[in-house]
């Protein structure tokens, strides 16, 4: 169990505040770091990785500061945003050099294991400047994993990967999280975050706008009506009955069923079965249609 903790962390450049008073604790599992461009995600990741000093506050891993503390890299693996690699080395040499720099007792075995984990064994002897962007990215992940770190930070890890490689990387992150590692990755593609992790940290304009499971975050946004898509045995009859319920703010009747705007998630979901039963209508489908990460994210950014 390794915790990455940020307490009251701010970072400014002159008069520009890049990260503003962020406090969060990341525990085992996979967490997605989300935010629009320029929100401060990379600045935050650099501070977590010990490559930038916080102007105020502290970033610690199990109580040890990450800034000016090279020993922290025994627990930390980093895949940063810049894709530069030593193109003159083969992939195997690159990962093996990482293993040796970590002082691993059996660098060769660790190298084989890490390269197999990212499915790059077949291409391991080629020079890295002959790799595609996605292959380089996977070798960088292998190098970051070679010492079996408890915390793994990845900045835009899916960049340049084809769909199959992307799927494989998602599975890899899932399994690393399931093994009890603390994995944080940033991405600007919401579907990626949605597929890999339910837990998100949302950064907007340098501030932590929301934190936790995005479905829970959505339900806590009580000022925004929840939108549900409903199909039933008699949509028109159900629409009339729902309009009479105080938990419903509006109903749209379409050819694909009803779109219901409910003021409160809990009250509506408790009221619907009762209303349907009273009206003798069978509900065939009930989908919260704005609980996607995309809706949650757009609500947070526009708030």
């Amino acid at each position: 169990m390794t915790d990455l903790e940020l307490s009251g962390v701010s970072r400014w450049y002159g008069n520009v505040v890049a990260v503003n008073d962020v406090t969060m604790t990341l525990g085992p599992g996979v967490t997605g770091l989300l935010g629009p461009n320029g929100a401060g995600k990379t600045t935050l990741l650099h501070m977590m990785a010990g490559f930038l000093a916080p102007s105020r506050g502290a970033v610690t891993i199990d109580g040890s500061p990450t800034w000016r503390n090279p020993a922290i890299y025994r627990k930390l693996g980093l895949v940063n945003e810049r894709e530069a690699v030593y193109g003159f080395l083969s992939g195997k040499e690159f990962v093996r050099a990482s293993a040796k720099l970590h002082g691993l007792p059996d660098a060769d075995a660790a190298t084989r294991r890490a390269i197999a984990l990212v499915e790059m064994t077949d291409a391991q002897d080629r020079r890295m400047d002959t790799y595609s962007k996605g292959m380089r990215q996977r070798m960088r992940v292998a190098a970051a994993l070679v010492h079996d770190p408890a915390v793994l930070l990845l900045d835009e890890p899916f960049n340049g990967m084809d769909p199959r490689q992307r799927m494989h990387m998602m599975e890899l992150l899932h399994s690393l999280g399931a093994q009890g590692r603390t994995v944080l990755f940033s991405s600007h593609i919401l579907e990626e975050v949605e597929q890999v992790s339910g837990t998100v940290q949302v950064i907007v304009a340098g501030r932590l706008a929301a934190s936790g499971d995005y479905r829970t975050i959505r339900r806590l946004m009580t000022h925004r009506p929840h939108v549900f898509a409903i199909r039933s045995s008699d949509d028109r009859r159900l629409a009339v009955a729902l309009m009479a319920s105080p938990s419903v703010a509006g109903v749209t009747l379409g050819k694909d069923g009803l779109t219901v705007h409910a003021g409160d998630y809990g009250t509506f979901t408790r009221a619907l079965p009762r209303i349907a039963l009273d009206e003798g209508v069978r509900v065939r489908q009930l989908i919260p249609s704005d609980e996607s990460l995309e809706s949650v994210f757009s609500y947070l950014v526009s708030a």
Partner: peptide, 15 residues
């Protein structure tokens, strides 16, 4: 300049 220094710096080695 090219950013590869991060690979060496992200290791537990005294600077």
């Amino acid at each position: 300049d090219d950013g590869t220094v991060v690979h060496i710096l992200a290791k537990p080695i005294p600077r």
